[in-house]
Write a protein that binds this DNA or RNA. Structure first.
Length: 946
RNA sequence: GCCCAGGUGGCGGAAUUGGUAGACGCGAUAGACUCAAAAUCUAUUGAUGGCAACAUCAUGAGAGUUCGAUUCUCUCCCUGGGCACCA
């Protein structure tokens, strides 16, 4: 046997495996399936990072173990190749991103193959392949058809120098990542996906999946479900406002502000003196009615004079003279404003009143009866404002309201607000604030009181001031809060700054007493547009006549055309906008002139469904056949699509993707499930994550620090098996660990040791008949005889069986480091033991094979096995061989270890205690003292308390 | 500020229904083999004191519960990651 030459061995077996296709998954096999998944890489120009193999080896070990357990395993790979780095490279160099991507994926493929992952390469996919993104576009159209993809004007990050919209991740500290210019906010129309429609299910269904607890928590925090109450606060005029002296008396039912009242009052008096015929009749009717309803005439509401009004019911009765035929539009506007303030309006002409006075009166009474009693509480006439709170119990402590500057109430109350100029100025200031200023660390609270109006706290009926401030967000809740400065740090800070009252031992309220229970989410709809070149074109056209029209499914994919320049246009559109030949097209509906959408999709799109494509990567008729989806996601052909259980069996990936990618793909999957297109309601049954590999010394690996490790170099010098074992051994799989080239040697030595044992085992096999020489049992020093060449219950067999069990369990829990540690112990033991049985050695090779697939395959083959070790059956451990009949227990005095004794497992507690108390060393310590208490922990220790 | 994960020898890390702290590996020291080196093997390797047997101290800090705490409780400090005024 030759010396261990990793270069030869690894190349040799990689070729054989590929030629035989031993890792190719079989569709619809009667075998049970197992679908294990890693996040497909972005093929960057820098080549494979040393961190990639960590995650891939972890799942490779799981996949290989599953194959040995008899599963038909799908462990696929592909490329998530759309995205910014390639596009930026294209902008800089003018090279076609297609060519760059091809070059990068070629490098990545070669590198991954050199590490010996058991990927099914026949299912390789690429998100930038038109045959793939045809289906990304197709899924988008399904969203569009269900109304879940829509266009909306939203604020985006805008770089005024580059004249382009920026993704959040391109904004570093409020500045453009590329040119360093301060980023502005700009309103633009964007495509949105309505993920918020799924917020409740995305949160709730986490109960049923097997994700690491921290992953579930991160998802839940991101979705941000909170339960609270919506409470309405009535608004009224500030009663402290009085008219200037000598200007008359304040009316009892004041429904406008004093300035307007002053202006309009004369006109009111004049109108009362000179009623029209219709008005006269109406006033007689309403005044003399015998019902409980009380009417007033010519009453000022907001900026208008209402003819007749029942203030308690907020009903206005208008009597229109001939002149009203000419000002219908004005009346309409007036009605709209009054409706917003909560008034209902009925309108009659002079003629109608003269002819049908009794009928009209009856209809007014009926109308009044139909208005709910809630309106009766009205006495001031300005409606209310709804606030959202998770702490309705603190309502007695609410001493003021705060509205977001964007709140609609501010324009609605315009005529009531006495300091509108000041308010408007503040709103403008807030709008001009950049993102950095609004989110800066000091975050000084600003705000303005809305003067002229007050809110009524429904709990204690107290009048409280209303403020606007930008610490209240328009996009969350109702855009308005009740401030409880005694209880909330932010409200307290605000109240202290603006000298607002803080009430400390307020009464707790019951949850249901005010307002109604309501659920809110932090999650926002997904901004799905990018003004970029290197992404999937959004497959719709804009028609002059028909508006937004989806591209016909038969015309998919809408292929990304070649362009000369990858820079976005001056107006911030994608470079696609410059290709008029591509942009100008026909409307699929009316065949008239139309323009193509030039926005592209974000690179989250292709990765939201890629695991589905792996089940049927070459299908040109569907994104994947139902048959394959059923098999790979549920292992059940007869299952109807509505049943919902299953998904990818095990998905491992980075912590950086536990919110966005995971949430997005769960959202797409649930949508497809609702359309009957996938058989399960969740994409992934189980999700784990791996930690990062940092540079030596625990800092980030980066070109600028110069601590980047090239995996090719490691594979060349130490071999793929050593790299794999080292990356699994270096620390806990889910934690970040610092790379140490110095330490790799330990993993290499371990493999060489396994090789040396193999050499010896092979020699025995070839040159000697299994002999009957006794083998020394290292544990108790006795010699054990062997029967028929097999050593029975030797210490080695015991360790072997224990190790099989441990490795088996550790792989399932991803405790790869301790699995390797236990195999190192086994190897050391085997090397010490003479006459290692070939069958025992082979079992060792088998449990090591998922970690070090090449060297174990070579040794397995050398020992005469024809079939691949990776297709062999996972060895079974024997409980009886693991059991100890004698064990060592520790004797403590007052918790300190003073002696060790050997006991037989069947000995009873009393005997063992006696043994401990009679122990020589213990007697010495106990001299002259009484044992107060003797504690026995089974198979562990005895503690004597003195 | 909030949330999450961590803090154990010179270094990476073991040890969880509370039960021998430091498995395994790297590094270091000494020895065997060798003309020599490399490789390999063997031994030692938390700190302090002691010739030694051995003793004492030690898992970020401090308290508590317990016969017994790296593990449980409380308070605090530090490192890494995420969120960022979400009512």
């Amino acid at each position: 046997m030759k010396a261990y030459d990793h270069k030869k061995i690894e190349k040799k077996w990689q070729n054989i495996w590929e030629k035989k296709g031993i890792y190719n998954a079989k569709n619809n096999s009667p075998q049970p399936k197992y679908y294990s998944l890693i996040e497909f890489p972005y093929p960057s120009g820098a080549g494979l990072h040393i961190g990639h193999p960590r995650s891939y080896t972890g799942m490779d070990i799981v996949s290989r173990k599953r194959r040995m357990e008899g599963y038909n395993v799908l462990y696929p790979i592909g490329w998530d190749a759309f995205g910014l780095p390639t596009e930026n490279y294209a902008i800089k160099t003018g090279k076609d991103p297609r060519i760059v991507t091809k070059k990068n994926t070629d490098t990545f493929r070669k590198q991954l193959k050199s590490i010996g992952f058991s990927f099914d390469w026949s299912r390789e996919i690429n998100t930038t392949d038109p045959k793939y993104y045809k289906w990304t576009q197709w899924i988008f159209l399904q969203f569009f058809k269900k109304g879940l993809a829509y266009k909306a004007k939203i604020n985006i990050n805008w770089c005024p120098k580059d004249k382009t919209g920026l993704a959040n991740e391109e904004v570093i500290g409020g500045c453009c990542e590329r040119c360093g210019t301060k980023v502005e906010k700009r309103e633009k129309e964007q495509w949105m996906l309505a993920i918020t429609k799924y917020a409740e299910r995305l949160d709730k269904d986490l109960d049923d999946v097997d994700y690491l607890p921290q992953i579930k928590l991160a998802q839940r925090n991101w979705i941000g479900k909170s339960e609270g109450a919506e409470i309405e606060f009535k608004i009224k005029h500030n009663p402290s406002l009085t008219l200037p002296e000598g200007e008359g008396e304040m009316p009892r039912f004041f429904t406008t502000n004093p300035e307007l009242w002053k202006v309009l009052q004369d006109r009111v008096l004049e109108m009362r003196k000179n009623p029209t015929n219709g008005e006269k009749i109406m006033w007689d009717l309403l005044r003399r009615n015998t019902t409980e309803y009380h009417f007033r005439r010519q009453h000022i509401v907001d900026r208008f004079i209402a003819d007749f009004i029942c203030v308690e019911k907020k009903l206005i009765v208008e009597v229109d003279g001939d002149i009203h035929d000419y000002k219908k539009a004005e009346d309409k506007e007036r009605t709209k404003i009054l409706n917003q303030l909560g008034f209902e309006i009925v309108r009659f002409s002079n003629d109608e009143i003269i002819k049908n006075r009794e009928d009209i009166f009856q209809s007014i009474i009926l109308k009044l009866n139909s208005i709910s009693s809630e309106a009766l509480s009205f006495g001031e006439g300005l409606g209310g404002v709804k606030v959202f709170t998770t702490r309705p119990d603190t309502i007695f402590g609410a001493t003021y309201l705060v509205l977001a500057p964007e709140h609609e109430l501010i324009t609605n109350l315009k005529s009531q607000i006495t300091n509108f100029n000041e308010v408007e100025k503040y709103i403008k200031e807030v709008k001009n604030k950049t993102e950095i200023e609004r989110t800066s660390d000091d975050k000084v609270k600003t705000g303005v009181e809305i003067k002229g109006v007050k809110a009524i706290n429904p709990a204690n009926k107290e009048e409280i001031p209303i403020w606007i401030a930008d610490y209240v967000l328009a996009t969350y809740g109702t855009g308005a809060i009740m401030a409880v400065p005694a209880d909330d740090a932010r409200d307290k800070e605000f109240a202290e700054k603006f000298k607002l009252p803080i009430v400390k031992d307020y009464k707790k309220a019951d949850f249901e007493d005010f307002g109604k229970k309501i659920t809110r989410f932090k999650l926002r709809d997904w901004v799905f547009s990018r003004q970029r070149y290197w992404g999937e074109p959004i497959p719709v056209v804009h028609c002059e006549k028909c508006g937004i029209v989806p591209v016909l499914e038969k015309d998919l994919p809408v292929e990304l055309p070649k362009v000369k320049n990858y820079q976005p246009t001056d107006s911030g559109e994608s470079p696609l906008a410059n290709i008029s030949k591509w942009v100008n097209t026909k409307c699929p509906k009316c065949k008239g002139k139309a323009k193509r959408e030039t926005d592209t999709m974000p690179n989250w799109a292709g990765s939201s469904w890629y695991y589905l494509r792996y089940t049927d990567p070459k299908n040109s008729k569907e994104f994947a056949s139902k048959k394959n989806l059923k098999y790979w996601l549920t292992s059940n052909f007869s299952l109807s699509f509505g049943e919902g259980q299953g998904g990818v069996d095990w998905y491992n990936g980075g912590n950086e993707h536990t919110t966005l990618h995971l949430l997005y793909s769960r959202f797409w999957h649930k949508f497809l499930f609702d359309q009957g297109l996938v058989p399960t309601s969740e994409p992934y049954k189980k999700r784990t994550s791996h930690g990062m590999i940092l540079g030596e010394g625990g800092v980030k690996m980066s070109k600028s620090i110069g601590n980047v490790i090239n995996p090719d170099e490691i594979v060349k010098t130490y071999g793929a098996d050593t790299l794999r074992v080292y990356e699994m051994f270096m620390g806990p799989f889910n934690q970040s660990v610092a790379w140490s080239t110095e330490s790799i040697i330990g993993s290499r030595r371990f493999i060489e040791k396994v090789w040396r044992i193999g050499e010896r085992v092979l020699k025995q096999k070839n040159f000697s008949v299994p002999d009957l020489k006794p083998v020394k049992n290292s544990e108790d020093g006795r010699f054990q005889s062997k029967i028929g060449g097999m050593s029975q219950n030797s210490s080695l067999v015991k360790i072997l069986n224990k190790t099989i069990k441990k490795v088996e369990e550790d792989i399932e829990g991803m405790y790869f480091n301790t699995a390797i540690s236990s195999m190192m112990i086994l190897a050391t033991e085997m090397e010490k033991t003479e006459n290692v049985q070939i069958e025992d050695y082979k079992k060792f090779l088998q449990i090591l094979s998922p970690f070090a697939p090449h060297v174990t395959e070579e040794l397995w083959n050398t020992l005469g096995e024809k079939k691949s070790i990776h297709l062999s059956s996972w060895p079974k451990w024997d409980e009886n061989l693991i059991k100890d009949e004698k064990i060592k227990i520790v004797v403590q005095i007052n918790g300190k270890v003073r002696a060790e004794i050997m006991i037989r497992v069947e000995e009873n507690e009393e005997t063992i205690k006696q043994k401990a108390l009679m122990n020589e060393a213990i007697l010495k310590y106990l001299a002259g003292k009484d044992a107060k208490k003797v504690i026995y922990v089974k198979n562990r220790l005895i503690n004597i308390v003195v």
